[in-house]
């Protein structure tokens, strides 16, 4: 039949089946009338990140720790921490911008966020009439409720909710302990809150076979022992900051001698808005632990497993050997810590 053109008619039969079949058979008419009809996107599909809030937009989970900003490979996130009228950090972002023309949807920000605050959206209708400002998403655009998260990704959101609930319960049980621990801390640079690598020290034992790198393990140990969230760190930071405010005036007036250990609450450098040089100048005549603390990024983000004070104390006490745990501070902090330790002759 080949030379008689049988194949031609076979082809005609195929197209005829498609033509007439399209009137009866849904499978032969696969086109979707897009603006009116939409295909349900798979639960695991993702487009760009958004920020989760609980109940009201004010109760956002983000504490402006800048870990995602630091980790973002194409550097598309820009965060400025919010402050109250006294200039005190409020542990929430004032500016949170994501440039979706740069974002490569890699989800690393979601992976690194310790607070479950940033998640991947599946909204794909992001076209704009410009390439520049129009494609930058600001805080109000980014904030979406936890209900929305539960709607678009039910399985993932349920797991996250369960985890947060469990942590909240632990926190309420543990609440007295960190408070007690926090109180004596300013008095003297005590050993680290918990020797992080040793599971015996903490009440929360991370299983040996859990899939964590040593850094992650250390962070988790610190995170759990500190009460599970930034909430417990807040009083410390606020207290130290407010004392610092008061003490700043006379500290600058009366050149505190280096020999006398300054009151630990007096930490004028504890302000993420200051530059590294300014912070180091403020801590110039202080003991090693204070200098180390001044080298931190001052966000109290807990990415290292401590707050800024605690991490500095742990390094000074020798219980924490890793100098690269301060994520918001990036390489600047790490190299400064190393330099300080060298100057002190400890490395």
């Amino acid at each position: 039949m080949g030379s008689l053109g049988g194949g031609l008619f076979k082809g005609m039969a195929v197209t005829a089946r498609n033509f007439f079949g399209s009137y009866f058979d849904k499978d032969r008419l696969v086109a979707v009338q897009y603006p009116e009809e939409r295909i349900q996107t798979p639960e695991n599909s993702r487009t760009f990140p958004f920020l989760v809030y609980d109940n009201t937009p004010d109760a956002m989970r983000c504490v402006a720790c800048k870990i995602c900003e630091t980790e973002c490979p194409p550097q598309c996130i820009y965060i400025v921490m919010d402050r109250d009228e006294k200039g005190k950090p409020m542990q929430r972002p004032k500016v949170f911008d994501i440039d979706i023309s740069v974002c490569m949807q890699c989800q690393i920000c979601v992976e690194v966020c310790p607070f479950e605050a940033i998640k991947m959206d599946n909204d794909y209708e992001k076209s704009q009439y410009g390439r520049f400002d129009e494609l930058i998403e600001h805080l109000p655009d980014l904030l979406k409720s936890n209900d929305y998260y539960n709607k678009i990704k039910p399985t993932e959101a349920a797991a996250v909710d369960a985890k947060l609930k469990a942590e909240a319960e632990k926190k309420t049980k543990k609440a007295p302990a960190p408070a007690a621990k926090a109180a004596p801390k300013p008095a003297a640079p005590k050993p680290a809150p918990a020797p992080v690598a040793a599971p015996a020290a903490g009440k929360f034992v991370i299983p040996e076979d859990a899939p964590f790198t040593p850094e992650q393990r250390a962070w988790l140990a610190g995170f759990l022992s500190s009460g599970g969230s930034a909430g417990t760190a807040t009083p410390v930071a606020e207290a130290s900051a407010s004392v610092g405010e008061a003490a700043e005036a006379d500290a600058s007036a009366t050149e505190t001698p280096a020999a006398e250990p300054a009151p630990a609450g007096d930490t004028p450098w504890h302000d993420p808005g200051l530059g590294m040089q300014q912070r180091m100048d403020l801590a110039k005549e202080r003991p090693l632990a204070d200098k180390l603390m001044a080298a931190m990024a001052q966000t109290d983000c807990h990415a290292c497993g401590y707050d800024c004070r605690g991490y500095a104390d742990a390094i000074a006490a020798g219980s924490e050997k890793d100098l690269s745990l301060c994520l918001p501070g990036e390489a600047e902090t790490a190299s400064m810590l190393e330099q300080l330790m060298k100057e002190d002759g400890k490395v």
């Binding site: 498609n18 033509f19 399209s22 008419l29 696969v30 086109a31 009338q33």
Partner: peptide, 10 residues
């Protein structure tokens, strides 16, 4: 229309 139907479109 016919070409569309042949190609599973509308």
């Amino acid at each position: 229309k016919a070409l569309g139907r042949i190609q599973n479109r509308l």
